[in-house]
Design a protein around this nucleic acid. Sequence first.
RNA 1: UGGGGCGUAGCUGAGCUGGCAAAGCGCCGGACUGUUAAUCCGGAGAUCGGUGGUUCGACCCCACCCGCCCCAGCCA
Length: 433
Amino acid sequence: MTLASTRVSGLSSEVGKAVTVRGWITTVRSSGKVAFLVLRDGTGLLQCVLVKSAVTQDVWDRFAQLSLETSVAVTGDVRADARAPGGYELGVTDLAIVGTSPLDYPIQPKEHGIDFLLDHRHLWLRSPRQRAIATIRSELEQGIQDFFYQRDFLRVDTPILTAAIGERSGLFSTEYFDEGSAYLAQTGQLYGEAAAAAWGKIYTFGPTFRAEKSKTRRHLTEFWMIEPEVAWNDSNDNMKLQEQFVSYLVQRALEKRSAELTELERDLTKLEGIKPPFPRLEYTEAIDILHRKGSTTPWGDDLGAEDESLIVADYDLPVFVMNYPKEAKAFYMKENPADPRTVLCDDLLAPEGYGEMIGGSQREDDYDRLLKRIIEEGLDPAAYEWYLDLRRYGTFVHAGFGLGLERTIAWICGLPHLREAIAFPRMMHRLRP
RNA sequence: UGGGGCGUAGCUGAGCUGGCAAAGCGCCGGACUGUUAAUCCGGAGAUCGGUGGUUCGACCCCACCCGCCCCAGCCA
């Protein structure tokens, strides 16, 4: 069976023609002898009008059977009408029910609590708001690939099942044949470094997993991360790439998906000015500013959420905080020659309180220093033999970063919580659907 | 894991110092030829998260348990 039919988004070029549109019933209204149904097909909403005197009794009776989310094929004439949402509507001549929908469809056109909506995420996705977010996410994912493709990066897919390696935060584990435990990847970075030594400019794009018992709007247990790694880039080059990347994504969303951003009631003026360069603060400088603003975070500690908000409040752009104290950061970051208490790294803080969008650093490329740091952190050097090989055989200056996709989406879309930025969010208390 | 909050009809959510459990949406029946989350009239629908306790009487007070939300930490 061929189901060639017109999609709602393409109707403006079909005015005056008879078409069939397939989709799901969003609302039905009847005034006795004129009836309206609104159809959703994933590209938009279409109002369809039935006039009792203009359709057969069969068609009229079928309208009466329609319930929310019934799937239908509606045939009629496309016409422009100012009274229709979107400006076009269908004068119905025929109506076929494809799949019925019982009267207990859970999601009504009204307010629901978040827990209820997440329990029904598989159905919640049908709402216009969720379509807008998914569309922007897809646009950004395409933009990410375009950005790196244009710059001759290779995309490298790194393993999700790994032996214990990477960062220190919580790991999900699973049985792995006779090898003992395998862990779900928290980062592809170490593999990315190997790939950068092989191929120069690379990026990874995949899911990552953190078994931390985080319960905030800025955390998921499964999220998507983009991790470029570039041979011969130093920390400064690294930040330049970051601000170009983030700016590109914002401008891309504005250019291609302003309709969806508007649907989400995003204030576009807050996005329009996102262009390089972004402000840069040394960590030590940031601590001074924070102390002047009343924070008591001592030099040496990582910045808290409160601190990040205080910093970001002074700017309309994302802000780099760079060169953190060694103790606050991971073992693989390169010591800062200008201040050996610190390492060459940066966090990019999103505006409007969306938190850390990027964490990046220049990597330690000195074999002895790296080994020393591994031991200092209490890690097992044997597990890092292959990683140390990257310094043993032709070490090289390199730097990279990880961008959290959902945080970026949440910021660009203006979402209050990360859970809407992905179709099926995984959180501490949320494994299904 | 700490601090705060919540759990009442399918959903949303009132319920004061303890005295027969509001309402709106949705659903069912009816009216209506241009509706926009249509409107109007009528109707059904609730072991008040669970267990125990105090009381003549508990949605309300107490204890424990379960579940979730927000904030923090961890980080992207």
